[in-house]
């Protein structure tokens, strides 16, 4: 269990969802999925997406679900909220490979991380922190008002912050 006091304001970002806010956001049990945070260095606000797959292949119905569209929608929505792209930093966590040896799992986690990093590079957004890969699930909470802290709790109980 998390040692942090749960904040009643914390909003859960489910698989494929995204949100921009000043209040805390959390994604529970990330396996191959990635929690993507774009934090604005001024204004104490930012966005988070729960990215499931690396490539939207042109689909637009769920922008938070794919690496490419998630970066795009967060940048766009943060810009309309007054956060300039040059002020954004990114943090990512997740992308584990939990079941090695199963035929259907072609390193989705790793491909998710690579796709997000490539999309960030395309926008010149600095990757300020990452905790990706491995074999364990993670629960992440992002605190826009606390200088963009992203707290990561692994399945083995370890808690770290990026």
């Amino acid at each position: 269990m998390s040692k942090e006091q749960p904040d009643p304001q914390t909003v859960i970002i489910g698989i494929g969802e995204y949100r921009i806010a000043k209040t805390p956001m959390s994604s529970i049990g990330l396996g191959s999925c990635i929690g993507l945070v774009l934090h604005s260095r001024n204004g104490g606000m930012g966005g988070m997406a729960h990215v499931m797959l690396p490539d939207s292949q042109g689909r637009e119905d769920r922008p938070g679900k794919f690496a490419d569209t998630a970066v795009e929608i967060l940048v766009t929505e943060l810009a309309s909220a007054g956060c300039r792209t040059s002020q954004l930093v990114a943090k990512i966590a997740g992308g584990a490979s939990m079941f090695k040896g199963f035929s259907g799992n072609l390193n989705i986690g790793e491909r998710n991380a690579e796709a997000i990093i490539a999309a960030l590079k395309g926008k010149n957004i600095e990757l300020a922190g990452k905790d990706v890969g491995g074999t364990m699930g993670r629960t992440v909470t992002y605190y826009p008002a606390l200088e963009g802290r992203m707290v990561i709790r692994s399945a083995d109980g370890r808690v770290k912050e990026i």
């Binding site: 698989i15 494929g16 396996g31 191959s32 939990m98 079941f99 040896g101 199963f102």
Partner: peptide, 28 residues
């Protein structure tokens, strides 16, 4: 059943990993 794989981990992370695997082909 195929041979089993065991992990001691978060159930949501396991289910999510399965749903993102190739066989599920981008479901909503």
């Amino acid at each position: 059943p195929s041979p089993p794989t065991l992990t001691i981990d978060m159930p949501h992370a396991a289910v999510q990993s399965i749903l993102a695997s190739e066989g599920f082909m981008d479901i909503n």
